[in-house]
C-alpha cells in the first residue's frame, strides 16, 4: 500500500513536470517595447505626412515621404526577424503593398499635386485607426514574466 502511494506520488510529480514543459510553447510572440515604440512613431509621422498632403505639393514632400516609408520598411523587417510574429509582419506588408491604400494615397498625391483638405482629414482618421490596430496588437501580446 505504501509502495503504491509512493509510486502514485512520483507519477503525479512526473505528470506535473511533463505538463509544465508541454504547455510552454507559445502561439504568438511576446510583447516587444521596441516594436511598440516603432509603431507609435510611424503613426505620428504618418499623420503629419497626411496633413502635409493638403498643404504641400508632392515633389516638395519627397524627403518626408521617404522618411515615413523607410520607417515602415524598418518596422516590417524588424517584425519579420522575430519568431511567431507573422500577424504583425502581415500588417506592415499591407501598408507597403503596391495594391493597398498607403501606396494608392501616395500615387493620388502625386497625381493631384495636393490633396483636398477633406481628403487629408479623412485619410488621417482612417490611417490613424489602421496604425492603432498595429499598436493594439503589439500591446495585446503577453508580457514576459520576470
Amino acid at each position: 500500500m505504501k509502495r503504491m502511494e509512493s509510486r502514485l506520488r512520483t507519477f503525479l510529480t512526473g505528470l506535473l513536470i511533463v505538463i509544465s514543459f508541454a504547455g510552454c510553447k507559445p502561439l504568438i510572440a511576446l510583447y516587444d517595447a521596441s516594436a511598440y515604440s516603432q509603431a507609435v512613431s510611424i503613426k505620428v509621422d504618418l499623420l503629419n505626412l497626411l496633413d502635409k498632403a493638403a498643404t504641400t505639393e508632392f515633389t516638395a514632400a519627397n524627403a518626408d515621404i521617404s522618411m515615413v516609408t523607410i520607417e515602415i520598411q524598418k518596422a516590417m523587417e524588424y517584425s519579420k526577424g522575430k519568431d511567431l510574429n507573422s500577424l504583425s509582419t502581415s500588417q506592415y506588408e499591407i501598408l507597403l503593398s503596391g495594391s493597398h491604400s498607403y501606396k494608392f494615397f501616395l500615387q493620388l498625391w502625386e497625381k493631384e499635386k495636393k490633396l483636398s483638405k477633406g481628403a487629408s482629414t479623412e485619410y488621417k482618421e482612417t490611417f490613424g485607426m489602421i496604425m492603432d490596430k498595429i499598436i493594439q496588437l503589439e500591446n495585446g501580446k503577453n508580457k514576459e514574466k520576470k
Partner: peptide, 26 residues
C-alpha cells in the same frame, strides 16, 4: 480621393482581422 478612402477602409478591416487573430492567440 473617395476611391482611395474606400480602399483605406478595406485595409482597416483587414488590419482589424489580423489584430483580433493575434489578440486571440495571446
Amino acid at each position: 480621393e473617395f476611391a482611395g478612402l474606400l480602399l483605406a477602409d478595406a485595409d482597416l478591416v483587414q488590419m482589424d482581422a489580423l489584430t483580433q487573430a493575434g489578440l486571440a492567440l495571446a
